[in-house]
């Protein structure tokens, strides 16, 4: 129904239509097409061949490895971010505000610049390599730059705030009297953490993992800079199809498949989350 108020959404709808849905439609369209490998002419068609190529080990193995790196980075973000968020949630006043700002400050500097800064830190002869040499690890061994590990470090560094913030919000909402009640009823602080803090923080954990995991899976810049073209994530495989190989149909099929997979994950997570929200 068109009301005067709904006119307000027109600019958004037009914008999204032109710059989001049309390209997306083209992408889907391309993904069913075929390409002439000599002329790079795209022939429209309705073939599933591009989708079948995805599970070809030649592509599927690096794709799954990329997914693995993203999952690892997400898990690292959770493990590193949780104690920080817990600590922040127990502080009050100024200290808490300052820490919140500190968590968000990196967002104010360009993402690409920050990633390049990591290159200096991680490359051979850089401070990290020197420090490792001092404690006797990796002396003489090839550096961590251009390894999957460097990519994981880059993702953790860039996405950690996206993990900490939802965790913080969830933990801060837990009424401290619940932990007192838990102690009063005989639970040690570890048991209280297991039985009260963790379940009540579940929505934050899920939100943090979605916020980090999904963009990390499609991450393009970090592996390009820190992986040196050797460690590819799904995003890089897709970009290569378009930019290096000119195989638009296959690149489109990969993009659409990734999108569908992530949407499936989101749907499952959302429905699970609704159950826990019932609880919280």
């Amino acid at each position: 129904m068109i009301t005067r108020r709904s006119i307000l959404v027109v600019p958004t709808v037009v914008w999204a239509g032109i710059f989001f849905f049309i390209p997306l439609g083209l992408l889907v369209f391309y993904s069913f097409g075929q390409i002439d490998i000599f002329t790079f002419d795209v022939t429209w068609g309705w073939t599933f061949e591009n989708y079948q190529r995805i599970i070809d080990p030649l592509y599927f193995k690096p794709i799954m490895r990329g997914v693995g790196i993203s999952l690892l980075a997400t898990a690292l973000c959770l493990v590193i971010g949780f104690p920080v968020a817990l600590w922040m949630s127990r502080l009050g006043g100024l200290a808490q505000s300052l820490l919140l700002v500190a968590v968000m400050v990196p967002f104010w500097a360009s993402f690409v610049v920050r990633t390049y800064a990591l290159v200096n830190l991680l490359s051979d002869g850089g401070p990290v390599a020197d420090a490792l040499k001092v404690i006797g690890i990796g002396g003489g061994a090839p550096g961590i730059m251009y390894t999957p590990f460097a990519v994981a470090i880059g993702i953790v560094y860039s996405y950690l705030p996206l993990m900490i913030l939802p965790l913080f919000v969830a933990l801060e909402r837990i009424n401290p009297s619940l932990l007192q009640a838990s102690a009063d009823l005989g639970a040690s602080s570890f048991r209280s953490f297991r039985r009260v803090t963790l379940p009540l923080a579940a929505p934050g954990i899920v939100a943090g993992c979605v916020l980090v995991g999904i963009p990390a899976t499609g991450e393009y810049v970090i592996p390009a800079i820190l992986g040196g073209g050797k460690t590819l994530l799904v995003g890089n495989v897709i970009a290569d199809q378009f930019l290096e190989l000119g195989d638009y149909p296959f690149g489109s099929a990969l993009a659409v498949a990734l999108m569908l997979a992530l949407m499936a994950v989101l749907v499952v997570v959302r429905s699970r989350l609704r159950n826990t929200e019932d609880v919280a």
Binding site: N175, S177, L178, Q180, A181, D184, V196, L200, V279, A280
Partner: peptide
């Protein structure tokens, strides 16, 4: 010793 809290402090989950 156990306590009944003013805010009830029941576990919402």
């Amino acid at each position: 010793v156990t306590t009944v809290f003013q805010s009830y402090a029941l576990f919402p989950h």
